[in-house]
């Protein structure tokens, strides 16, 4: 039996990979993937604690998160396509309309 702390450490590592990905990668699609990583790190936590606490609520919640994540990817990709049509690039440093 794998102890709980292993799962928590795995999810921490996955989450940090996602965070670093968001912060340093330049391609928006990769950013989106990194965000998905962070979501799934949370999912690992949910499942692990659900099992540990003998409570199914956490596993049910994961389904909601997966559904929302799917929807989010749809919207996110649509936005990226729209951006690409407008700017002909998906490199994040070229998209700086908010510069003051």
């Amino acid at each position: 039996m794998v102890p709980l702390s292993y799962y928590v450490m795995l999810s921490t590592v996955v989450f940090l990979i996602g965070v670093v990905g968001v912060l340093i990668r330049r391609n928006i699609i990769v950013l989106l993937l990194s965000i998905e990583l962070m979501l799934n790190a949370a999912n690992i936590n949910f499942v692990a604690f659900s099992h540990y606490l003998r409570n199914l609520n956490g596993q049910v919640f994961v389904f909601f998160v997966l559904t929302v994540a799917a929807a989010e990817v749809v919207v996110g990709l649509a936005i990226i396509i729209a951006l690409y049509r407008g700017k002909a690039t998906v490199q994040i440093e070229n998209i700086n309309l908010m510069k003051g």
Binding site: V22, I24, E93, G100
Partner: peptide, 12 residues
Amino acid sequence: RLIQSGQLQHYA
């Protein structure tokens, strides 16, 4: 306004 670089990743 100097703070506002427009780079999404700075904000993140």
